[in-house]
Amino acid sequence: MADMATHNAHHAQHDAFQHQFEDMEQQRDAGTFGMWVFLAQEIMFFGGIFAAYIVYRALFHDSFEIGSNLLNVKFGAANTVVLIASSLTMALAIHAAQAGKKGKTQVMYLLLTVLLGVIFLAVKFTFEWTADYHEHLIPGFGFIIRPEWGAAGSHVPMFFSFYFFMTGLHALHMIVGIPIILIIAVMAWRNKFDEVYHAPLEMVGLYWHFVDIVWIFLFPLLYLVGGRYLSNGGH
């Protein structure tokens, strides 16, 4: 204990400093490195379903176009705006900590991020998925293959299986992320983060931005599959 006290006094370190590190900078870099290793795993986690999507879209291109044209581009685009805005507020929450602003400022931006995340999920579940259910577009829940789809119709349910699995997995990541942001917001409220130590805030930020990036790819791949120009768009 005496050694540690001397050590800490010698380096004049932050309260959150962990003794196994040389200094706060090394501690922060180690944390960032670890989080990115986790996110690299997440790339592969989503990568499997993306690879499957690529293969089946190549095999059943016409069916995927028919399915994509049944989605509502307006809701998809609006949700893209909402999610990117939530990424901005998350970046500003971390900026507030880095700039040495009070915990309340960080909390405000974090709550804005949660609010935008909730709006995204609300639009997805109440407007989009509910409409899909009423139009019999959910495989396994009374999916109806329409005669006007022709020969390609038999594989339209496959597009919707991808649609629900990919957007569902993405939504699940958001549902996991929102409580974590709220826990971090409580920590921020207690002024745990400052310009030197804000690792938990930064880590949840990296996670949230990653989820945003997944959506940046899901939006064109699901809603804007080639052939949008052939239809009048959406429901």
């Binding site: 870099d29 960032t32 490195f33 990115w36 290793v37 996110l39 690299a40 790339i43 592969m44 990568g47 499997g48 993306f50 690879a51 690529i54 293969v55 190549a58």
Partner: peptide, 21 residues
């Protein structure tokens, strides 16, 4: 080091897609 982890992540994604295709 962080940049390398990211590049490695996308490299393995590219391998996954390329060999599947």
């Amino acid at each position: 080091l962080t940049k390398m982890v990211i590049v490695a992540g996308f490299f393995f994604l590219a391998l996954l897609v390329a060999f599947t295709l």
